[in-house]
Each structure stands twice: as structure tokens, then as C-alpha cells.
């Protein structure tokens, strides 16, 4: 697994962005950038260079689920691994996220171990 890949963390709460960023740093990923909702995230993704997307669901402007759909609909971005980290916990929502094409789903509040496990799992699948 290459540790120098560029990761985009999207969450409207700066606290959560910082937590995820620090946990990614613990895993050896230091190239992490941030956006506070789907609207600001999408142009960053379209610029290219981002290889992994971690996004919240409930955000003003453009929600995470809409961002996932936009990414999957864009031929240049469609293959990007996406981890959804959200407090949304309804069965329909989780199913909808999976159908929209997320590669992992972590509900808040999470532990460091769970987040790390899900990230590892995503990279294992990509690697294999």
C-alpha cells in the first residue's frame, strides 16, 4: 500500500476532519486534504490527484450521498475508493449508500480501531 497517496476528508465539522486526519496520519498517510461539504469537495476531486475519499453524509450545501453519486457518475472519478463516515444509521440509508457505491461505511461515534480496520480493508481490496 502506497502511503503517499492523496486523501480528501469531507466533513462539515472541523473537529471530525481533524480526528480523521490524525488517525490517517497514525496509519502513515500524511498527504491529507480537507473540504467542508460536497460542493467544495467536488471541484477538488475533479482537479485530479485525489486517490481516496472519506466523506460524511449530513452536510449543508451538498450531502455526502450526493457527492458519492456525483463521483460514481463521473467517468474520471468513478473508480475512486470511498469510505463513508457518518452518524446516519438507518437501514435504508446504509443500503442506499452501498447502492450508491461506497466501499466502506463507518458510523459515528467510532473507535480508532474500527476506522483503521475499514481503511485497511479498502486498501486490501484495491491491492488485490
Amino acid at each position: 500500500m502506497k502511503k503517499d497517496i492523496k486523501i480528501l476528508v469531507v466533513d462539515d465539522f472541523s473537529t471530525m476532519r481533524r480526528i480523521i486526519k490524525n488517525l490517517l496520519r497514525d496509519l502513515g498517510f500524511n498527504n491529507v486534504i480537507e473540504a467542508d461539504d460536497g460542493k467544495t469537495a467536488l471541484p477538488i476531486l475533479q482537479q485530479g490527484g485525489v486517490q481516496f475519499l472519506v466523506t460524511d453524509w449530513n452536510m449543508p450545501g451538498m450531502t455526502g450521498i450526493d457527492l458519492v453519486r456525483a463521483v460514481r457518475a463521473d467517468p474520471k472519478l468513478a473508480g475512486m475508493p470511498i469510505l463513508m463516515v457518518t452518524a446516519e444509521a438507518k437501514r435504508e440509508q446504509i443500503i442506499a449508500a452501498a447502492q450508491a457505491g461506497v466501499n466502506g461505511y463507518v458510523i459515528k461515534p467510532f473507535t480508532a480501531a474500527v476506522l483503521k480496520e475499514k481503511i485497511d480493508k479498502i486498501f486490501q481490496r484495491i491491492g488485490s
Partner: peptide, 30 residues
């Protein structure tokens, strides 16, 4: 599937996944 924010603890709604294990079970069952 509109974003609702965090679920209230003890709400006991069968439509709501309580923890990460529930989420994992649901997704793997699908």
C-alpha cells in the same frame, strides 16, 4: 434516506443500526 443526523440512544428503532457491527452485518447480508 434524508440525512437525519445522529440517532438517539435507546430509541430502539428496528430500522436503525445500533453500532458498527449492525452496519457490517447489514452490508454483508446484502
Amino acid at each position: 434516506i434524508e440525512a437525519e443526523g445522529p440517532q438517539l440512544a435507546g430509541k430502539n428503532d428496528p430500522d436503525v443500526a445500533c453500532d458498527q457491527d449492525d452496519v457490517d452485518d447489514l452490508l454483508s447480508s446484502l
